[in-house]
């Protein structure tokens, strides 16, 4: 068998551990930040505003926002972890070591994206645990919940990886998350059901891919969704395939990696 066909697992493990090392080095900040922000969301949306909002589809508002809160962090954390993870070695010049090592593109992606997804899933679980302090949690389909969590974390970590390769400055690194992903997440039904919108805006919302992620994730919690669960799953899978395609293209062409 050609050596090119044997996976270099020690390399995947080395990249994964190296990337996770950064998370644990700043564990206080990594863990405390999502706990504090979740608490703030619950104080503002749950207690202050939520007490004046009636139940949504029979789910109390405080509980209703839990999947949206997790998704919000999952998307932003996946993108920022993965984009920073690959951008920093490019910026510092240490990428030479990855490029000159006997590693396939698949192994590089597994290491970086695996670590980024792991970090954001951990943060998602921390938010879930923090939420349990404020509302009585209910998860109707725990396996689907884990499935959506994994799928979304991997998809958006891949997307972050692409941004980290595309960016040629720290400003660009923030551009897409700030101008595209955060608005799409807020407008994607994190804090409301899109069924609550007037028909025109409801239709517009369906163009937003994040709607399908949040809807599917919320269905896993409460068994109720804005859009059909199969369509949610299909759209999430489509996002994954698009990101995989982009990453494959980048490695094939050596875009931004090799001159």
């Amino acid at each position: 068998m050609s050596s090119a066909m044997t996976m270099n697992w020690p390399a995947v493990r080395a990249i994964y551990r190296f990337e996770m090392g950064r998370f644990w080095r700043t564990a206080g900040q990594s863990i405390l930040a999502p706990v504090i922000s979740t608490t703030l969301y619950f104080v503002v949306f749950g207690a202050a505003i939520g007490s004046r909002v009636s139940a949504v589809d029979g789910v109390p508002y405080g509980l209703f926002i839990v999947p949206g809160l997790i998704m919000l962090s999952l998307l932003t954390q996946s993108i920022s972890n993965a984009s920073f993870g690959i951008y920093f070695p490019r910026f510092a010049g240490t990428i030479y070591e990855i490029l000159s090592a006997p590693i396939s593109p698949l192994e590089v992606v597994l290491g970086f994206v695996g670590a980024a997804a792991s970090k954001s899933i951990l943060i998602g679980l921390i938010i879930l645990a923090t939420s349990a302090l404020f509302v009585p949690l209910r998860i109707d389909h725990p396996f689907w919940m884990i499935g959506f969590l994994l799928l979304t974390a991997v998809t958006f970590s891949l997307f972050g990886f692409v941004i980290g390769l595309w960016a040629d400055g720290f400003e660009k690194l923030q551009l897409v998350p700030l101008l595209v992903v955060t608005p799409l997440t807020f407008l994607g039904g994190s804090f409301y059901a899109i069924g609550m919108l007037p028909p025109f805006w409801h239709a517009v919302s369906l163009l937003n891919p994040v709607v399908y992620l949040i809807s599917g994730f919320r269905w896993a919690f409460f068994g109720k969704a804005d859009v059909n669960i199969a369509i949610s799953l299909g759209m999430t899978a489509l996002c994954l395939v698009i990101c995989l395609g982009l990453v494959t293209y980048i490695f094939r062409t050596g875009y931004r990696l090799k001159s």
Partner: peptide, 8 residues
């Protein structure tokens, strides 16, 4: 140690 790991 990281470098050693990269080389499998």
């Amino acid at each position: 140690s990281f470098s050693r790991g990269l080389f499998g």
